[in-house]
Amino acid sequence: MTKAELVDSIARKVDGLTRAQVDVLVGTMFASIKDALAVGDKVEIRGFGSFRLRDRAAREGRNPKTGELVTVPAKRVPFFKAGKELKEVVDA
């Protein structure tokens, strides 16, 4: 399912909102999660899961084209951990 299909499906289920309006609301929801993490906050949604940042240590890597050894710097990456209820319905 893509974002467009997600929006279609929700637009069919709600009254009083156009597909375009639903599209905007869905966009705001994902943007708000992204923005929260971008300022170092975490997002905890009970029953669904939590989004937070994980530290990745610096490591040695190679430029795959030249074979040259390079240091990949330490960084933070978004990380999602599924909540209890989501885990259960997916594994049912």
Binding site: D35, V39, V77, P78, F80, V90
Partner: peptide
């Protein structure tokens, strides 16, 4: 078992690179 995984898009990854770490 079946488990859910999430892969952040490059845009998402880039947006957190300079974030303050408070969690």
């Amino acid at each position: 078992r079946r488990v859910v995984t999430f892969r952040a898009s490059p845009v998402f990854k880039d947006s957190v690179l300079d974030s303050i770490h408070s969690n």
